[in-house]
Amino acid sequence: MTRFILGRVGLLAIAWLLASVLIFATLRILPGDVALVIGGSKASPERTAQLREALGLNQPILTQYFEWIGGVLRFDLGESVLTGASISAELIEKAEVTVPLTLLSLAIVLVVALPLGVFAAYKRSSALGQVVQASSVLVSAIPVVWAGLLGIIVLSTWLQWLPSQGFPRDGWSEPWLAFRALILPALTIGLIEGAILFRFVRSATLRALEADHVRTAMSQGNSRLRALLAHGLPGVGLSVVSVLGLQAAALLVGAVVVEQLFSLPGLGRMLVTDVGNRDLTKVQSTILVMTGIILALGALVDVVHRLIDPRMKGSSEE
């Protein structure tokens, strides 16, 4: 198992470094000049040249990359070229919104997908089971923006149950207000991603119902439901673990759109603003951190799956 974990860590490090190269190169292809953004459209060529030199933009591309990635490896993400503020401090501040939003969305995904997926498979021949399945297809096809607007109209404008936009100025010092501000955004992406995971859970449950060990349990006198719960669901759980990392990554990416729609001061909204301002150092550091989180989630899912899957226990003891 130790060898397996070390191998996954090594692959994670290689993938992360390759991602850093791709992120750095892609941002350099984008049109625009941060020196012109800072100096303004009326800045003289001499002033623009001074700014480029002060920002290190006149250095060779490889030098710029190695200075940046070297700082990241020392846990120094640098400073914003526009404000001079610490990027690490801003990321931590914005993560106080994005991380709880992602976790709440993931909780909604699990609450929606797991029980309904199992129910729809168990009752696949019933009218209610077919209605649940059809509803999942409909919900998963709704764009996030449309779902958010519909939620604002129904839950905020008509029913006035939840706030439509914004986040408390004092943040989590007012826990209930902060939590209420995240409920509608979390529902927006959680229900859609939950509908996607629902179909996966339903398919896994259908396979479990047809599995030999479940049929054997029923032949020994267990009811179909008891056999499924006792012998089928563990296998369904293993299958769900395999895709949870992808679901968490999708939720993190979805937060970029949702935070814009609901005016939440999180990582997604900050990233969109910084791209428009051409704050390259901040943008590339933010994307690299988010990429690292997504890669780490994938590696963690692989390790957990190997730990709990009895078919892999023998090889995990190497």
Rank of each mutant, 00 (worst) to 15 (best):
A121P: 03
R124F: 11
N58M: 03
Q160K: 11
A299I: 02
D274W: 05
A299F: 10
L55Y: 12
S203N: 13
Q133E: 15
L229W: 14
M270A: 13
G71A: 02
S156N: 03
L82Y: 08
A296C: 10
V214E: 03
P60W: 02
G117F: 01
G129Y: 04
G78K: 02
L150S: 13
V37L: 10
V240C: 07
S135Q: 13
L244W: 05
F198T: 00
D302H: 12
L110Q: 11
S126A: 09
F198Y: 06
G171Q: 12
V289G: 05
I69H: 06
E53K: 09
G314R: 08
V99C: 01
L271A: 12
R3A: 15
A186Q: 10
E318T: 13
I308Q: 05
R202C: 02
E96W: 06
A211M: 06
L128A: 14
G39M: 14
Q133M: 11
V243W: 07
A121V: 06
R8L: 11
D212V: 06
L225R: 14
V145R: 05
F167G: 07
N277V: 07
T216D: 02
L12K: 08
L267Y: 01
G276F: 12
H305K: 09
A227N: 10
L209A: 12
L187E: 02
V137A: 10
W68F: 13
T63A: 13
T216V: 10
S88L: 11
I14S: 07
F200T: 04
T102M: 10
L11R: 07
T102P: 00
A250I: 00
L27K: 07
T157Q: 12
G314I: 09
V275L: 15
A19P: 01
R28P: 01
W161D: 06
A113Q: 03
Y65W: 11
Q133F: 14
T291D: 01
L17P: 00
S105L: 10
G237N: 06
P175E: 04
A120C: 07
I196V: 14
F4M: 15
G235W: 03
F200C: 00
A113C: 05
L225C: 06
F179P: 04
A250F: 01
V301E: 14
L182E: 03
V111S: 04
R8C: 13
L246W: 07
L18Y: 09
R278K: 14
F75R: 08
P60K: 03
P175Y: 02
L27I: 12
V272G: 04
L264G: 00
G171K: 11
I308K: 06
I308L: 14
L6E: 06
G245L: 03
A230P: 00
L55P: 13
F66Q: 05
A15C: 10
L77H: 02
Q50T: 08
L51Q: 10
G151P: 08
N222E: 15
S156H: 01
R74L: 07
L162M: 10
I152Y: 03
L187M: 11
V145C: 04
G117I: 01
T2A: 14
P45R: 09
E79M: 05
T273Q: 15
L264D: 01
A147R: 03
R169C: 01
